[in-house]
Write a protein that binds this DNA or RNA. Structure first.
Lengths: 195, 195
DNA sequence: GTAATACGGGAGCGGTCGTTCCACAACTCC
DNA sequence: GGAGTTGTGGAACGACCGCTCCCGTATTAC
């Protein structure tokens, strides 16, 4: 019955992710979004409700793609150490289009820092992301114990907690503009610390 | 010759730190600041130039007080492990007045996340803070080796790098609203991981 | 006292914010 | 083809933004 939508919603949300990654929530105006997404205000508001709605959609999209990315890395063959290293390194990869002087960082962590725990919907997603990361590392470590790569008495919970906390630190340091060399060195230290 | 200033500049800057900690840079308006600081626009702008100037002053004040706090902890007597634990725990302490549902986090990291590497003056301060933290931990570890508390072959650079990255992760997790119990557990894991 | 100087109070500037509204276009169903 | 429904385009709303200006006031130097 109706007229068809003239834009790809998914593509639009992904573009919104980029904008929010670059400038954060408050510094990205609905006009910026409309222009970059090729949407006029009425389309934007009809589709996403309001700016916060679009932000949460972008956050969801980001979580999904990051989750896929992490799962793919963890599912690869190879030693646990290699996969853990790969996991850390992929979180440091650049999205195409971002420059070195304005690294994007992680939308989850940027959200946590900018909005704090004030927005309940955002908080839910942040904590889900934290738990997901920890669970992934946990599972990987467990696998390492089973194959004998890691000592049987490894405190999986503790190490997974530390590794995921280190991952957070790494991504914030990246957002702050630290060099790849420095971040890669930290990754090496972390792998080596596994013993 | 002139009329005396009727407010305590330092007190005003500290109040600005609190506001920026709570709401971030963009979500804190100059009117919010003026109201909370008891300053009308003309006084505010005469004293600090503009909003960004006040922000950088607040950042400087924050860096100074955090630096003092860290130095005090590191200078205390006791084992290296105890002091390292104390250092981590103090970064998780609450400022008076903040509630559990809007934890403040760290102004340095909030700045890094919200503004990215875009503001050169802010970036300078962020990197100085990172380097300072790493240097402090480094020095403490070195001391631990000299007293024999830590193994002589400890890779001080690597451990200091990892510990300071973990500190970043801890503070972001706090800002995200994680429980004290979870954060304290991570601190325990980190200390234990020293071997 | 008088001149000089910085401050306090507050109205108000131009601009941008998030958001809404409405006329019109495009599509499906009958 | 007409009715019904949804999307698009763009102007515009009230609120708030960072910031400036002006004027009366308080203080110091002489």
């Amino acid at each position: 019955m109706p007229r068809l939508r003239q834009f790809d919603e998914r593509q639009v949300v992904e573009q919104a992710v980029r904008l929010f990654l670059q400038n954060g929530y408050h510094a990205t105006s609905t006009r910026d979004l409309g222009e970059a997404l090729g949407l006029n205000p009425s389309s934007l508001y009809r589709t996403f409700g309001d700016k916060r709605g679009l932000y949460l959609r972008a956050l969801d999209r980001y979580l999904a793609s990051e989750g896929e990315r992490a799962a793919a890395v963890l599912a690869e063959p190879g030693s646990v150490r290699d996969r853990l290293r790969a996991l850390m390194l992929t979180t440091l990869n650049e999205l195409p289009g971002q420059t070195d002087d304005t690294p994007f960082g992680c939308l989850v962590l940027n959200t946590a820092s900018e909005l704090g725990a004030g927005d309940p919907e955002a908080s839910k997603r942040i904590h889900a992301a934290f738990e997901g990361a920890k669970a992934g590392v946990n599972q990987l470590l467990q696998h390492g114990i089973e194959t004998g790569e890691l000592p049987a008495d490894t405190d999986v919970t503790a190490v997974a907690d530390l590794v995921s906390t280190t991952l957070i630190g790494l991504r914030v340091r990246k957002r702050a503009g630290e060099t790849k060399a420095a971040l890669h060195a930290t990754v090496d230290y972390a792998i080596r610390a596994l013993g």
